[in-house]
């Protein structure tokens, strides 16, 4: 049984992460009220990325699991980003 070496995430950690997520949520709503022009989209996407990272790392346990899970996640995200970039080779220059 590998149960003994299982990491237990404390309620405190979970609550802190939740607070962080809520903070980012209100931050992103507030920021989009301000007219940042073209930076609007990037700001919103960066904050969304940070929130997703918090969920992945703490709630989904990537920080405490075997490394292979983290490597897989990063690999999948990079492949997906590359697909978007390649798709936009077409649309950016059409």
């Amino acid at each position: 049984m590998s149960k003994d070496d299982q990491h237990i995430t404390s309620y405190k950690t979970i609550s802190l992460v939740l607070l962080g997520l809520l903070f980012f949520t209100f931050l992103t709503v507030a920021i989009t009220r301000v007219e940042l022009g073209p930076y609007n989209t990037s700001a919103a996407m960066i904050i969304a990325g940070l929130k997703a990272a918090l969920v992945l790392v703490y709630f989904m346990h990537l920080k405490f699991d075997q490394k292979v899970f983290g490597i897989m996640v990063i690999f999948v995200l990079l492949v997906f980003l590359a697909v978007i970039v390649v798709t936009f080779f077409d649309y950016l220059y059409r």
Partner: peptide, 22 residues
């Protein structure tokens, strides 16, 4: 192989840059 799909679409009307990259 994941990034070469565009070669099925060379006559579909993609941008020139996309054609060359694919």
């Amino acid at each position: 192989g994941y990034f070469v799909w565009g070669h099925h679409m060379f006559t579909s009307g993609m941008s020139g840059e996309a054609l060359v990259s694919f």
